[in-house]
Simulated assay, not measured.
Amino acid sequence: MEIEKCEITVIHEDVVNKVKKEMPDEEKLVATAELLKVFGDPTRIKIICALLKAEMCVCDLSALLDVSQSAVSHQLKTLKQARLVKYRRDGKVIYYSLDDDHIGRIFEAGYEHVMED
Rank of each mutant, 00 (worst) to 15 (best):
Q69C: 01
D66F: 10
K37W: 05
P42V: 05
A71L: 15
C57N: 13
S62D: 10
A54S: 12
K28C: 13
K80F: 09
C6N: 12
E108H: 12
E13L: 04
V67I: 14
R44L: 08
I94H: 13
T43L: 04
L52V: 06
H113F: 10
K5W: 09
K53A: 07
K46I: 04
E55C: 00
C57A: 03
E27F: 03
V114A: 15
K28Y: 15
E108K: 14
E22L: 04
K37E: 08
E108W: 11
K77T: 10
D90K: 00
K86W: 06
D14H: 08
L79P: 02
A54P: 01
D101T: 05
G40I: 03
I103M: 10
Q81S: 12
T78N: 08
V58I: 15
E34P: 00
C49V: 11
V114S: 14
K77W: 06
L98A: 02
V85T: 02
Y111F: 05
S97V: 04
A63P: 01
L61H: 03
D100L: 07
M115C: 13
I47H: 09
L52Y: 06
M56K: 01
M23L: 15
Q75T: 00
E108N: 15
H12T: 05
T32E: 06
V30Y: 12
R89I: 01
K86S: 14
E4V: 08
M115R: 12
L29E: 11
E116N: 03
R88F: 06
M56C: 05
K28M: 15
A71R: 07
E2A: 09
E2M: 04
